[in-house]
Design a protein around this nucleic acid. Structure first.
Length: 416
RNA sequence: GCCGGGGUAGGGUAGCGGUUAUCCUGUAGCCCUGUGGAGGCUACGAUUCGAGUUCGAUUCUCGAUCCCGGCCCCA
């Protein structure tokens, strides 16, 4: 009876895992250099954490369950809410801004497709405590730098929701939310219908439709023509000026929105090619969740990177492993084991576990791509030394164990 | 939840009503007990599952399941 893995999950073979860890470490290094500290939150949380953030409708997409104490729980579908919960629970007295990052698996009960799995990994950053544009700019710049560091050319679209909110603030709050959802979905027909349905002023209707279509270089100027010189546009300009200073390329896009009310201003998305329908590799923005979770009026800004999508499109060269194989004769196996123990203090050593004959051990070394083998046979025991053979050149020499360690670790460190 | 396209050894494939189910690769071993890569030989290993049609199904039909792509959703 063969058991298959659950739908939408994946096994990562050694080669896959090597690449994932390699890319992960590059990203980790970047965020550390930007001064962010890693945190870990539970794999499951109280269901309420996510319904509070995203509404009851979210439950259909969750891996939720009732535990043996009759508590409603769920595997986490994302990490922003847990991080905010953690902040409210135990970090409110920390020096601000708090610069946190995480790299964890998340779970969503969804139909799998290209770049979408039921268990997936998110690499995210949350900057808590600053409402300054500097924080927004740093977060965006960091996101682009992370993608750049793993060889992804992303297309960054950025917006300030304050502008559209200002335009809509004559409407009822509920109507505003509904409009934001329609804009987020890019459902232009639905938006038009809805505006008619609530009899929005013709002037507002015209301006809104035009505003959300504004993208590109002169979008700011046209937005100002459309709704006047409001502070939100000035903020947006300031953000863009900072992004210029960071050397970040962007596209202004008033059509980027979020369907949820806690987004406060800046929002951005980054797309990459080669991912089919799921081409967004990063999404972020500034938001106010801490108050919703019972904390103070503390602003945050952050983003999440879809790590699996990054793996699909990134083009990094993973350095090859260069294993070293200790080869012994039948009657020198125990000596070989002793030597291996010493050598393993310095380098990765493979030793025969299959009781292969001398020749077959060479063959094995060759097959796993060893660039050195260390031979321990009768001749070596007699000489009190070991034979080091370079598998590429075929050269071999009789050396002491210290000489071998010195040679391989000192001269060849990078290859190990 | 919905719509397409798929599923034959570990990977890649051929067969499309009756085959010992093809070939390549892989893995293990031998040729070859102090020297690897080539070659030869041997072994291992598969029709996704369940119903139906049929004398007979890997092949046809239906259902399920999983994979791939898309819709919905995207916190």
């Amino acid at each position: 009876m063969k058991i298959s893995k659950p739908r939408g999950t994946r096994d990562f073979l050694p080669e896959d895992t090597k690449k994932r860890r390699y890319v992960e470490n590059i990203l980790r290094q970047v965020v550390k250099n930007w001064g962010f500290n890693e945190i870990i939150t539970p794999t499951f949380e109280n269901l309420e954490l996510f319904t509070l953030k995203s509404g009851e409708g979210i439950v259909g997409e969750l891996y939720n369950f009732t535990d043996k104490g009759d508590r409603e729980m769920t595997l986490r579908p994302e990490l922003t809410a847990p991080v905010m919960r953690m902040y409210v629970n135990e970090m409110q007295a920390h020096q601000q801004p708090l610069k946190l990052f995480y790299f964890e698996n998340c779970f969503r009960y969804e139909r799998p497709q290209k770049g979408r799995f039921r268990e997936f990994w998110q690499f995210g950053v949350e900057l808590i405590g600053s409402r300054r544009i500097d924080a927004d700019a740093e977060v965006i710049a960091l996101a682009t730098e992370m993608l750049r560091s793993v060889g992804i050319k992303g297309d960054l679209h950025v917006n300030n929701l304050g502008v559209i909110r200002r335009l809509l603030n004559v409407l009822e709050t509920e109507h505003q939310s509904k409009i934001m959802r329609l804009v987020d979905k890019k459902d232009d027909a639905g938006l038009d219908d809805f505006l008619k349905e609530i009899s929005a002023p013709a002037d507002l209707r015209m301006k809104l439709i035009e505003l959300i279509s504004l993208t590109g270089k002169d979008a700011i100027a046209r937005a100002r023509d459309l709704i006047g010189d409001i502070p939100e546009i000035e903020d947006f300009r300031e953000l863009l000026t900072m992004l210029d200073a960071y050397g970040v390329e962007y596209t202004i896009d008033f059509g980027i929105a979020r369907g949820l009310d806690y987004y406060t201003g800046m929002v951005f998305e980054i797309y990459a090619e080669g991912l089919g329908a799921q081409n967004q590799v990063c999404g972020g923005g500034s938001y106010q969740l801490i108050k919703l979770f019972g904390g103070g009026d503390v602003p945050s800004t952050g983003f999440g990177l879809g790590f699996d999508r990054i793996m699909e499109v990134c083009e990094v060269e993973v350095p090859e492993d260069k294993p070293i194989v200790v080869i012994a004769r039948d009657n020198t196996r125990l000596e070989a084991v002793k030597m291996a123990v010493e050598l393993r203090k310095h380098m990765p050593i493979y030793i025969d576990l299959m009781k292969r004959n001398f020749k077959a051990q060479f063959s094995y070394a060759n097959n796993i791509g060893a660039n050195y083998v260390i031979i321990i046979g009768e001749q070596e025991i007699e000489a009190g030394k070991l034979t080091l053979k370079n598998m590429e050149s075929g050269d071999q020499e009789l050396l002491s164990i210290e000489e071998i360690i010195h040679k391989l670790v000192k001269n060849d460190r990078k290859k190990l």
